[in-house]
């Protein structure tokens, strides 16, 4: 009733007077904008915000995948998580993976981008070769490398043996899981960073190099004094993205060193969370573990952004 009362007088004056364009236009514009945002906002709320809130709630309950009644257990999951040796070990393993995988993924990407940028005639070929692995699905990539790493008859061990370097190394199996997954990951995901660098290289104006040429700078001086400093912003971006990606390691590691086929005793953080929640059915506990990893990644990202933004000032 209230609404009809207020609407009636509103409608009457607008019909009488010539419409003042500004307020209605503003109103219409804001509504239209909302409609455009709605699909994204809905997906964002349903699939990100809501699960995040739900996850936080679950972390204080004994929520189980079996669907039995949920009860509030306070901080039990959190205290268990902080005392869970496997959880800490898995976080350490994740850190180790990040430490091994990030430097090659940044440095190699830059090196290959510089190479491709210089190679005028073979440019298209190099771009394709370096980027191609990135579009291969993770299951195919891991399958390929698992074959290469096979202890008997795998390509790598075959040549290691032939060159007298110990062909009996048990790649991926039990001992060297981490190194093997790092190598696979570098081969697979390098292309993305490479592409970012290549785009940034093409954005550097030619005049800068021409000026340097006039001053008699050689290739090395130009690279170190001009190219790399001008790539600083993109390097910051690449490092942030790479760190976050590496900290979120799961797919390749699970497919190569976890799961059913191989029994590596090392686990990475998300793998541990996955096993606790989906295999072990303990959704509540897995939620608490996820939040710990989330905070861990958040801290790394904030520290990094602060360091880099200070540099830019």
């Amino acid at each position: 009733m209230m609404t009809t009362d207020t609407q009636a007088p509103d409608a009457a004056p607008t019909a009488d007077k010539p419409p003042s364009p500004t307020p209605t236009a503003v109103k219409r514009r804001s509504w239209t904008g909302l409609w455009f945002v709605l699909p994204f906002a809905a997906v964002y709320v349903v699939f990100l915000l809501w699960p995040m809130i739900l996850g936080l709630y679950y972390s204080f309950t004994d929520k189980s995948l079996t669907g039995r009644p949920v009860s509030w257990i306070g901080l039990d999951n959190w205290t268990e998580a902080f005392g869970d040796e496997r959880a800490w070990q898995s976080l350490l393993n994740t850190a180790e993976f990040t430490l091994y995988s990030t430097p090659p993924l940044v440095i190699l990407a830059l090196a290959l981008a510089l190479l491709t940028h210089r190679a005028r005639k073979l440019g298209w070929f190099l771009r394709l070769s370096f980027f191609a692995p990135f579009v291969v699905p993770v299951s195919v990539v891991t399958m390929l490398w698992m074959w290469l790493y096979q202890p008997d008859g795998g390509l790598i061990n075959h040549y290691l043996g032939a060159w007298g370097l110990g062909g009996d190394h048990l790649w991926v199996f039990q001992e060297h899981a981490m190194g093997s997954v790092v190598i696979t990951t570098v081969w697979w995901t390098l292309g993305f960073n490479f592409l970012l660098y290549l785009a940034a290289l093409q954005a550097i104006p030619n005049e800068v190099y021409e000026a340097a040429d006039i001053d008699g700078a050689n290739w090395w001086q130009k690279t170190v004094r001009i190219t790399i400093p001008l790539l600083k912003r993109i390097t910051a971006l690449v490092i942030v993205l790479q760190l976050i990606n590496s900290l979120r390691i799961f797919d390749q590691y699970y497919l190569m060193a976890g799961g059913g086929t191989n029994l590596s005793p090392e686990k990475v953080a998300i793998q541990h969370i996955y096993e606790m929640g989906f295999t072990g059915l303990r959704v509540g506990y897995a939620s608490a573990l996820s939040y710990i990893l989330f905070v861990f990644i958040l801290i790394v990202a904030i520290v990094q952004l602060r360091l880099l933004s200070r540099k830019e000032d």
């Binding site: 995948l65 799961g259 059913g260 096993e275 295999t279």
Partner: peptide, 10 residues
């Protein structure tokens, strides 16, 4: 193994 049981439970 676990991938199957995980899928089934979910």
């Amino acid at each position: 193994g676990t991938p199957f049981y995980t899928k089934l439970t979910m």
